[in-house]
Design a protein around this nucleic acid. Structure first.
Lengths: 386, 386
DNA sequence: ATATCTATCGGAAACGTTTTCGGAAACGCA
DNA sequence: TGCGTTTCCGAAAACGTTTCCGATAGATAT
């Protein structure tokens, strides 16, 4: 009853089991098996996107010629190119970036790993990255580590799996081992660090004036008459925190003030710890007359708590912080800060990275510093005139 | 001197021009041209990534079997699978997502278009999107329109070119024509709107309680004794602004307060315009005793300006706003707001989208509302007890 | 013993592009 | 006229994966 595809007759056709739910037949004449295939994949296909082959057929040339016409290759007759470009536009051709990337081995995509997109600093960095990336035709893929080392590692793996051409990363607070970075670096992936950098690996880095900014802030406090300056430092593991702590120490040293360990408190930037630090300082027989927070958020928390306790800022205790935001300007008293420029950090980081991607071998790992700016406001101004 | 590849002898070999910088030869015996090709593409190839073919060779099976073993297909012997998985792990195999996507016709990537990543609301939405997207194995590609319609269109095109599986979009202020959306929708791309949605197209949408929130805020002002309530509205084109304006009108109507057009001012959310609005109100013979800003940022600006002018908040003029942030809590007087939950907006939007992607045909365009919360603070509290 | 079935696998096409390399014709110069 | 040259184009391989379809061997049913 069933007819063999080859011999045309169905005399010697017998059943031969099921395969994938379909009846299988065997023609003893031809000695072959066969099933009746349905074009099912065809059916649920998406609407057809015009490809280079469609254009080739339409114009009457080969796909290679179309490709040559679309990328500005020299090996093509200007007349042919004109025609191909015309037809391509007419058919609304959009190159399939996946196929392109697969063939060329590059995706024109860069990966970004940041601790948290909701922190205004990183949002600013991202904006800077996006701006120059799109300008030069790169796409951006963003991941958040949420301050977790394991998530960070997974992020890196995911981005590598997506075959990004390069990586921009600011490490999580937790991260103290950098094997995931070293591994990719060894495989030849261009990587650029920013903000929370890592000195263990040879990558280009974009940093802020952590040392200089701290120095200026603390020097300013001293000039305002503070002598017992407490510091709300960050995690010991974070390079950036240490740099800021060093700036603090250097400023004290310059003015001959001895470092009092009781006034140095390492936190993980969480509010609870900040308040603990403050509490411990206020319990001292001689409380501080100035507080330097290496993170503006903690400075704000301190400001609010001091206000709640009725302690006068800046006359009893002056407060300064690192980093800036609208809130620092609007809070009362307004906060003296060392202002950072996150947008610029992003811009320089991605510029470095793309440079690294393009000049893969000749590229040298440089360290670039984005300058900041000391902004003096009420929280530290004890003298009316500056 | 040169030897033909085919006949082996070089007797009848003559030069035959240059091609791509290399000497071309012609063997008259064999009648063929040839050049001496250098393996140059080989040379600058990146370090080899293990592929499915490497594993196949190692195990001694075909690539299709390896593929079957790695994806949990049923048509494979458990023993073979074990072995293949073992070898794959040993060789540190990572599937090439580009090849996978090209073949399967899906990228497991969703595109997001937002006006500005630096606005805390959108950063929050992004965080929500990222969370659930990564949970279900989707990647996220983010673009900013910077409140420009043309950039938004380019963003959509770029994401489509990257073959995202779906699109999440909140429109720019400028956007009043939605052809770019309709086009992609017609091509079958799943799209979900959030926050700044668009009613012209049949997509799933995630909105906030714009109407309800406004109503509650204005009702609260009325209950606090305000009778001349001004509203700092958004652009007329923005649906979300209109919804908030409607809530305002409804609250007035409920309490029998006639709408005074002088007290309605449409801005584009920029500070300059906000101050212009405020100026115009204060010039009135009867200035307002309450101000409702549909965007918390403008409420802050108004608060600051009133303070500068020595006008007492809330007793001379009460101020309330839409949307929330840390700054609303910390500013003095602290700001009464209708609190939004951006993270939840992101979560629901991406959940809807992925549902849309998976159940492409059966999916119905629903509208989901993320509830907000009225938070009463000093800027509107005229009576001590609530 | 024969006919059918099941489990498992290989070959090859397909996804859409780029690039290599050779062929053919036209061209330039002696 | 004849040799070398240039220009332009096509065929085919390559990128790495999935999936279709057929092919076996052994198991089971008749």
């Amino acid at each position: 009853m069933e007819i063999c595809e080859k011999c045309g007759s169905g005399e010697n056709v017998v059943k031969s089991g099921f395969v994938r739910g379909k009846q299988r037949l065997f023609c003893k004449t031809c000695g072959i098996h066969f099933t009746f295939a349905l074009p099912h994949r065809e059916a649920l296909k998406k609407p057809h996107q015009t490809t280079i082959i469609d254009i080739a057929k339409m114009v009457g040339v080969s796909p290679s010629t179309v490709s040559r016409a679309l990328n500005r290759s020299t090996e093509i007759n200007p007349t042919t190119r004109q025609e191909i470009i015309r037809v391509a536009a007419e058919m609304d051709y959009r190159p399939n970036l996946l196929a392109q990337s697969l063939n060329r081995g590059e995706t024109h995509t860069i990966g970004v790993v940041i601790p948290n997109i909701e922190r205004p600093f990183f949002a600013g960095v991202l904006a800077g990255i996006q701006k120059v990336a799109t300008e030069v035709g790169y796409r951006v893929m963003i991941c958040q580590s949420n301050e977790s080392h394991s998530t960070e590692t997974l992020n890196v793996q995911a981005l590598v799996a997506s075959r990004v051409d390069g990586l921009l990363i600011s490490h999580s607070k937790e991260t103290t081992s950098f094997e995931h970075i070293k591994l990719q670096l060894k495989k030849g992936l261009p990587i650029v660090h920013f903000d929370r950098v890592c000195n263990e690996v040879e990558t280009a880095k974009v940093v802020e004036e952590d040392y200089e900014g701290s120095f200026l802030l603390v020097e300013h406090l001293i000039q305002q008459g503070c002598r017992r300056i407490a510091v709300c430092a960050g995690p010991r593991e974070l390079l950036i925190s240490n740099a800021r702590l060093e700036g603090y120490k250097a400023a004290l040293a310059k003015y001959g003030i001895v470092l009092n360990e009781e006034l140095v408190y390492h936190t993980n930037f969480k509010k609870r710890e900040t308040l603990l630090a403050l509490e411990s300082w206020l319990q001292l027989p001689q409380p501080p007359d100035g507080i330097f927070a290496v993170h503006y958020g903690n400075a704000i928390e301190i400001l609010v708590e001091l206000k709640n306790r009725g302690i006068k800022v800046p006359h009893e205790i002056a407060v300064v912080g690192f980093g800036d935001e609208l809130i620092a300007e609007l809070i009362e008293p307004s906060l003296t800060v060392f202002h950072l420029f996150p947008f610029q950090v992003g811009e320089t980081a991605v510029t470095l990275l793309i440079d690294n991607i393009i000049h893969r071998d000749s590229f040298r790992p440089v360290v670039q510093t984005v300058k900041g700016e000391l902004i003096i406001r009420e929280s530290s101004l004890r003298t009316k005139s500056l």
